[in-house]
C-alpha cells in the first residue's frame, strides 16, 4: 500500500510534536544562560516557577477536557469565584475557606459537565455561559472590592517555602503527578482517552460516557479553583475582577504547544507542563531583553501556529 511513502515525513513531524517542546525549552534556556544576565540565579528561577504554577494547574485540567475533544472556557471565572469565596469563609478558618472555593469548582464543573454530556451542548458554548456569568457572580459576591487576606496559613501556601522550594511549586508538582497517574494508570483515564478518540464507539462498547465526561469537567473546574485560591494566597488579596483573567488562553496554549491534539484521544501531561514552561520562558526572555509586550504576543502566536501545524498530521490518518 501507499503507507510506506507517507510514513517518513509523518514520523519526523510526530517526533517533533512529541519532543519539539522540550527541544525549544532547551534552546531557550541555553540562550538565556549565555545572553541574559542573572538568568541562572535562584531568585530568578523561583519567580519563573511561582508565576507558571497557576497556569500549569489550570492547564492540567484543560488537557483532560481537550483529551475528550472538548474545551473549557470557564476556568478563569472559576478562579475568580474561588478567590471571591476565600475572604467570605476565612473567618471560619483556612480549611473552611479552601473547602468553599473547591465546592465552587465542583458546582461549576457539574454544570459544565451536565450541559456537555447530558444536554448535548458543544463544549465551547456550554462553558462560555459560565465564562461570562461566573466572573460576574464572583464580582457580585466580593461586592466588587479588592479584599486583603492576612491569614498566615493561607499565605504560607502562596508564599512559603518547603525544603527551599516554594510551597506553590510543590503543590503544582504534586498535581502534575496525580493527573499523569490518573491518565496513565486508571480506568477513568483510559475511558477519557477512548471518548476523545471515538465517542460513538465508546458508547456502543457500553462505557458510562456521560459520567466520565461530567467527571472530567468537574476535575478541570476543581483544578481551576485550586489555582484560584493559590493566587489569592500568593497575592495576599482577593480581586475577583482580576484573578485568572485570560488564563483560559494561556492554559489552552500550554496544552496545544505541549503536543495534545485538539481532536481528542490523547493527553500529554508532561508536554502540557513543558508547554506552560516554554511560554513562561518566552515571555521572561522577552521582558529581560526589553522587548515590547506586543512583540511578545506575536512571538507567542508564531509558537502556537508551529505547534498546531506540527500536530496536524493526526488528522490525515
Amino acid at each position: 500500500m501507499t503507507t510506506q511513502v507517507a510514513a517518513r515525513p509523518a514520523v519526523n513531524l510526530k517526533g517533533l510534536s512529541q519532543y519539539g517542546v522540550y527541544l525549544a525549552i532547551l534552546l531557550l534556556v541555553l540562550y538565556n544562560i549565555f545572553f541574559t544576565p542573572y538568568f541562572l540565579t535562584w531568585s530568578n528561577l523561583r519567580i519563573q516557577l511561582i508565576q507558571v504554577a497557576p497556569i500549569v494547574i489550570v492547564a492540567l485540567g484543560m488537557a483532560l477536557v481537550i483529551g475528550t475533544e472538548g474545551i473549557d472556557l470557564s476556568v478563569g471565572s472559576v478562579m475568580a469565584l474561588a478567590a471571591a469565596l476565600i475572604p467570605l469563609y476565612l473567618g471560619y478558618g483556612v480549611v473552611a475557606a479552601i473547602l468553599a472555593s473547591l465546592v465552587a469548582g465542583v458546582v461549576v464543573g457539574l454544570i459544565n459537565g451536565v450541559l456537555v454530556a447530558r444536554v448535548g451542548l458543544q463544549p465551547i458554548v456550554a462553558t462560555l455561559a459560565l465564562f461570562v456569568g461566573g466572573r460576574g457572580l464572583a464580582v457580585v459576591i466580593s461586592e466588587g472590592k479588592l479584599k486583603d487576606v492576612r491569614n498566615p496559613d493561607l499565605i504560607y501556601l502562596g508564599s512559603g517555602d518547603l525544603l527551599g522550594i516554594p510551597v506553590l511549586v510543590w503543590i503544582a508538582a504534586a498535581l502534575v503527578v496525580v493527573v499523569a497517574f490518573l491518565v496513565r494508570r486508571t480506568v477513568f483515564g483510559r475511558r477519557l482517552l477512548a471518548i476523545g478518540g471515538n465517542r460513538p464507539a465508546t458508547e456502543l462498547a457500553g462505557l458510562p460516557v456521560k459520567r466520565v465526561l461530567i467527571t472530567v469537567y468537574v476535575l478541570c473546574a476543581v483544578l481551576a479553583s485550586i489555582a484560584g485560591l493559590l493566587s489569592v494566597a500568593r497575592i495576599q488579596s482577593s480581586d475577583a475582577s482580576a484573578v485568572g483573567l485570560l488564563i483560559e488562553l494561556s492554559a489552552i496554549t500550554a496544552v496545544v504547544v505541549g503536543g495534545t491534539p485538539l481532536t481528542g484521544g490523547k493527553v500529554r501531561v508532561l508536554g502540557t507542563v513543558a508547554g506552560a514552561l516554554l511560554m513562561q520562558l518566552v515571555i521572561a526572555t522577552m521582558i529581560k531583553h526589553n522587548l515590547q509586550p506586543s512583540t511578545t504576543e506575536m512571538v507567542q502566536a508564531v509558537i502556537i501556529l508551529i505547534a498546531v501545524y506540527v500536530a496536524r498530521e493526526r488528522k490525515t490518518r
Binding site: R190, R191, L193, A194, G197, N198, P200, A201, T202, L204, A205, L207, G265, K266, R314, R317
Partner: peptide
C-alpha cells in the same frame, strides 16, 4: 462506531 483508531490494539481490546 467501532474501533478507536488513535488507541493501541491493547487499549481497544481491553476498553
Amino acid at each position: 462506531e467501532g474501533i478507536i483508531a488513535g488507541l493501541s490494539v491493547r487499549e481497544n481490546i481491553a476498553l
